[in-house]
Computed example of a mutant assay.
Amino acid sequence: MSMMKITVSALALAALSATAAAARDQVRVVGSSTVFPYSQAAAENFANATGMPAPVVESTGTGGGFKVFCGGIGEDHADLTGASRAMKKSEYELCAQNGVTDITEALIGYDGLSIAVSRATPFDWALTEEQIYLALAAQVPVDGEWKDNPYKKWSDIDASLPDTAILAYGPPPTSGTRDAFVELVLHDGCKRLPFVKEGGFDSKWVEENCSRMRQDGPFVEAGENDNLIVQRLEADPNAVGIFGYSFLYENNDKLQGIAIDGVEPNSDTIADFSYGVARPLYFYIKNAHRGVIPGLNEFITEFVSEAGLGDGGYQQERGLTVLSHDKLVEVEKTVADAVKMEAPAK
């Protein structure tokens, strides 16, 4: 090893050890509840293969994960964070302010943002993005005016929909799933409204006026624990839930996905993006912790391995829509080379 590498490693170790007497012996992962089961699976396989302690994996939500991840360098701070959307410019800047200036971004696969219901439901569910917007948005057009949402039942929106109270359990504002829902469902549904199309309102107007979830009861924030949403759907066959496809996949015996605009969520429709609510999933690596936190490099290698993220791998068995072989090879190289991400545009 060169003197330069020894010096850099020593400095990194000094920085990581500044706040505690002993170095942490477990990798720490935070972030998205959607990415959580994939991080957990990689942690289990890493521990089984190496005999090293399994990484500690916390479900904090995408926004919460970035806040923790960007808190600083050192053993008191997380090594990786999972995300169900790309890092925002403001989050990148928060990282930089706290000395986290060398980050690698890794695309791990694709996910469908699912709206699901209990298999015990008495209704034959199918929704459009426009109907979903009218059910769950804070403000909607009423008699030619933009007003607070008055709809209480699904049948108030369309007589063909169930004559039951609107009740949807979904993620909080800190969740990347919430961000994706707003962007991919609320915004698109709002744009289809005759009020918006005929009024000539642009995308900026839509973003400013169609991004808020209603807070009068029909939409319930269920926290970052998607398993809690599953339990609530089991208890109430009239309720719907919003979460990543992996949770629908894992609970297929209890839940069924609702077709959106005539397309049901499954691995094929997510992979070819015919399901209109598909999105990429990521994790982010704090490169200053490589070679310092025991097991971090080995865990990263396990996470992006063919056995994990490849076609037929154990992540696909958990509902991940996997990357093509060529794309996975590209991701593996990006991670192995610790390629530094560029600042996001927004």
Rank of each mutant, 00 (worst) to 15 (best):
T101A: 08
G74T: 12
V117L: 05
E58P: 00
E44K: 14
A120R: 15
V30M: 02
V29M: 11
V68M: 14
S84T: 09
G61C: 12
Y38N: 00
C95N: 03
G65R: 00
V100L: 03
G82N: 07
P53L: 12
H77K: 08
G109E: 10
Y38P: 03
Q97H: 02
V68K: 12
G51Q: 10
R28F: 14
V68T: 07
I103Q: 07
E44T: 14
I115P: 03
G31P: 00
F123E: 04
S32F: 02
P55V: 04
R119N: 15
E44R: 10
C95M: 02
N98V: 02
L127D: 13
D102G: 07
G65V: 00
F66D: 00
A41G: 11
A96C: 11
T101L: 09
A47W: 04
T62Y: 07
V30G: 02
G99M: 09
V100P: 13
Q26D: 12
V27E: 03
K67V: 07
M87P: 04
P122L: 02
W125S: 11
H77A: 09
M87W: 10
V29A: 11
E75A: 13
V30C: 06
F123H: 15
G109H: 08
G71A: 12
A49E: 13
T101N: 10
L127C: 12
T104Q: 09
S32T: 05
T50P: 00
T81S: 14
N48E: 13
K88W: 04
L94H: 05
H77M: 09
V100G: 07
E105V: 02
A120T: 14
D25M: 08
G61S: 14
E58W: 01
I103A: 05
G64I: 00
E58D: 12
I103Y: 08
C95V: 09
A106V: 14
P122S: 09
F36K: 03
V29W: 05
I73P: 12
G71K: 01
V56M: 02
D124C: 08
M52V: 03
V29P: 08
S33F: 10
I115R: 01
R119T: 11
I103W: 05
E105Y: 03
K67C: 02
G112L: 10
L94S: 10
L113K: 01
A47E: 06
L80A: 10
S90F: 13
T60N: 11
A106P: 08
M87K: 05
D79N: 10
F66P: 00
S118W: 04
D25G: 07
G74R: 11
K67H: 06
L94Q: 14
D124F: 12
M87S: 01
Y110A: 14
S118E: 08
A120S: 15
V68C: 02
I103S: 02
A86K: 06
A83E: 05
Q40H: 06
G31I: 02
S114R: 05
A49I: 06
I108P: 05
D102M: 11
T60I: 04
L80T: 04
D25S: 14
T81G: 02
A86W: 08
E58R: 06
M87I: 15
D124H: 15
G31W: 00
S84L: 05
A78T: 05
A126E: 15
R119M: 12
S90I: 13
A78R: 00
